[in-house]
Amino acid sequence: MYGYRCKKCGKLHHPARLVCDKCEGREFTEEILDGEGTLLTYTRVHNLPAGIDKPVLDFGIVQMREGVCVSGQLDIDGEIYTGMKVRATEGVVRVMNGVEHTGFIFVKA
């Protein structure tokens, strides 16, 4: 999984965007996001959409050490709490029309 760093002002974005919202720059360099972060909020979802074949799944919003905030799935056994340290991994989050989509899956740091 990547962050997209503005070549002009250095702000890190996720997901990719066309224009930097800090300096109007239009060029970005890809940077792997696999570090640690802090869980800002989370939920355990019981009414998952079609295409997710699980009874329940945990999701969270994480502030990465690099500064950018991202959404992702959580794969954490035991207690989940706001402020806990997590680590970003990349994994298959959904299969759509036979195509595997990868994304952030956060584990306990």
């Binding site: 997901p15 979802v45 959409p49 999701f59 969270g60 959404s71 989050v93 959904r94 994304g103």
Partner: peptide
């Protein structure tokens, strides 16, 4: 960055509520 994860409007409402 959102839809493929299985995130829904209800998921975001839940995280916002917390």
């Amino acid at each position: 960055a959102e839809y493929p994860y299985g995130l829904t409007l209800t998921s975001f409402a839940a995280m916002f509520t917390r």
